[in-house]
Design a protein around this nucleic acid. Structure first.
Lengths: 151, 151
DNA sequence: CAAATTTATATCGTTCACGATGCAAAAGTA
DNA sequence: TACTTTTGCATCGTGAACGATATAAATTTG
């Protein structure tokens, strides 16, 4: 049993990695209709809650690096979802704001979370159990932020 | 409250996505010492449990597509961790086997899971709570496999 | 057995994710 | 005020992830 810990079956991270990918897969049909990807959907969630934010704020809320978010925003700008303007007080900043198209997409996206819940319930007969993981996941995320590499 | 469901705070998938990325980040310092990435580590876990498997079996165990795993294996072959030989009964198959270097790495990787557990415990004062998520994650993953897009 | 279909893997193009690095503007310091 | 450091964002290179497509070998069918 010397290598027992190295079995895939014993690994939490592998579950998170897999569950995250498959969940994003489940979003795919809905996001395809809107012509956006899951990370782009996340950016929209952030902007729908509060429009006109600098790149840094968006990256921080998504726990991503700015060098991931910048090209993401460039693609979204090319797709006509957002526009990026120079900051006024701090000209280093790029303020990201929603276009008309980006604002209107909220209405079409409104039902996605419920669609997904329904699908999960229909397939697994469960929902409560998964929602109950949220506080644990938040605690884990909060802890992982203070890991050597994630600081 | 019309858009309440579209808040980042209410999204399970966002937690999974973030937790998975940050957990992989926590593995980073350990895997760097071995010169491998997290997905490469997963492939090694699979091969350490059973050497000499076709690409398809590896992909299936990791819930990945073969067009993700093939380039991954090519990089691992270039790094001298595995070799890929033509299958004998079925010549379409590529049998992936560990090299000496790949076999020996198991010894160096042996303590990684415990190192990570210790780190999590030290930071969050918790471990049980996260381990308790595993059955729920497995149930979720099993369900998600039967989603339209993940079939 | 020959033709059609399926299967195993590979290749290509696009989008993330992120380390390393660069650059200009802002902030701090002498 | 001149100089140094920090900050905000961008660019580049590498490694995933995956859809679409290609190709050859196996399997099924007629």
């Amino acid at each position: 049993m010397e290598y027992e810990q190295l079995k895939l079956d014993n690994q939490l991270c592998f579950r998170l990695y897999t569950a995250a990918r498959l969940t994003m897969g489940a979003y795919h049909p809905y996001l395809d209709l809107l012509g956006i990807t899951y990370p782009q959907y996340l950016v929209l969630l952030v902007l729908w809650e509060q429009d006109k934010q600098p790149v840094n704020d968006i990256a921080h809320k998504l726990f991503l690096e700015t060098n991931t978010v910048t090209p993401l925003l460039q693609r979204m700008e090319k797709a006509g979802l957002v526009k990026r303007t120079k900051g006024k007080e701090d000209t280093r900043q790029r303020i990201v704001s929603l276009t008309k198209k980006g604002i209107e997409m909220r209405e079409q996206a409104k039902h996605i979370p419920d669609c997904l819940s329904d699908e999960i319930i229909q397939i697994t007969g469960e929902e409560e159990e998964f929602v109950r993981m949220i506080p644990s996941l938040d605690k884990l995320i909060e802890g992982l932020k203070h890991t050597t590499h994630n600081k």
